[in-house]
């Protein structure tokens, strides 16, 4: 790695680039990749609104801060939560990462009346699957953002002929989101990928077993679900198979199951970041410590 590249690693790309990543395709547009920009924006938008057709007002109920009440400890009326919701600023994760679609969906679904609040709380058919789709749009937006950041970094630090990695780092991270370890396999570390995938899947499966399948349920444990959804393949399996099951009384180890599935999701976050890094280092290998020093 050149001295300039080594110095730039620690600098980052700045707040403007970071914030631009919340609009799918904007970084690709700035990079002159018009087709990829359209694909990113259209794909994220479409995925969100396919899910939104079913979940609609439920996005308010699943938000970190629901618009009907201020967060614990804050003064009522200090922050205009309802006004923010009306303007489309709703802290539903990971949908928030696909900011334009999440904002438009919130504006279209917002109803401040008691009837509107009743609709937030009303479960609806197939909401597990369609809620997963809106969440997947947020994750997809994050991976497009990562792809844009990677391309910016490659052009900045790669000199006249930017190096080409064995696999796109953002694609490796996205593959690991669906199947833990698959990103490592794509980047050339097959045995390590299989081992990491095994670790994540076993912890997630143990959580589901301990909770009799009810550990991953966005309607009942929406905040925990944010962490669990970091293992996208697992949360999709739960949305299709276990979450729709009727719960006849709380299983004795429900809490343990919820925590284990969340731990598995957080483990997969580490796996995703590592898959990105493994692919990245095939283009920009780590220098010796003396080279990295400013």
């Amino acid at each position: 790695m050149s001295d300039r590249a080594a110095r730039n690693v620690a600098v980052g790309l700045g707040w403007g680039t970071f914030l631009a990543g919340f609009v799918p395709g904007l970084l690709q547009y700035q990079l002159g990749q018009k087709q990829r920009a359209v694909l990113a924006f259209g794909g994220c938008f479409l995925l969100f609104f396919v899910g939104w057709l079913v979940v609609r007002e439920r996005l308010f109920y699943w938000a970190l801060l629901t618009p009907d009440s201020p967060p614990p400890g804050s003064s009522p009326g200090l922050i205009p939560w309802q006004g923010m919701a009306r303007a489309g600023v709703v802290f539903t994760l990971p949908e928030l990462l696909n900011f334009p679609a999440n904002a438009l969906g919130a504006i279209l679904a917002w109803d401040a009346s008691p009837e509107g609040e009743r609709l937030w709380r009303m479960p609806r058919d197939l909401e597990h699957l369609f809620g997963w789709l809106t969440a997947a749009s947020g994750m997809l937006a994050a991976f497009w953002s990562a792809a844009g950041h990677w391309e910016l970094r490659r052009r900045r630090d790669g000199g006249a002929t930017p190096p080409v990695p064995v696999a796109d780092p953002a694609l490796c991270a996205a593959l690991s989101w669906l199947v833990p370890g698959l990103g490592h396999c794509r980047a050339g570390q097959k045995d390590k990928g299989a081992l990491l995938g095994f670790a994540v899947v076993v912890v997630f499966a143990a959580g589901l077993l301990f909770a009799h399948g009810h550990a991953v349920d966005r309607a009942n444990a929406s905040v925990w679900w944010i962490g669990q959804n970091l293992f996208g393949g697992g949360s999709l399996f739960a949305a299709l198979v276990t979450a729709p099951l009727r719960m006849e009384g709380a299983p004795p180890n429900l809490d343990l199951g919820v925590v284990l599935c969340t731990v598995a999701g957080l483990m997969n976050l580490v796996v995703m970041v590592d898959a990105f890094t493994v692919a990245e280092r095939t283009a920009f290998p780590l220098g010796k410590p003396a080279e990295v020093a400013p």
Binding site: Q189, L195, A199, M267, D274
Partner: peptide
């Protein structure tokens, strides 16, 4: 029986970041 195996599996993911293959990681 739950804690020790889960600790081991979490450690696999943490240690895996510093190695290139499964044998060294384990």
């Amino acid at each position: 029986a739950v804690y020790v195996p889960v600790l081991f599996l979490v450690a696999i993911v943490v240690v895996g970041q510093h190695h290139d293959n499964a044998r060294d990681t384990l």
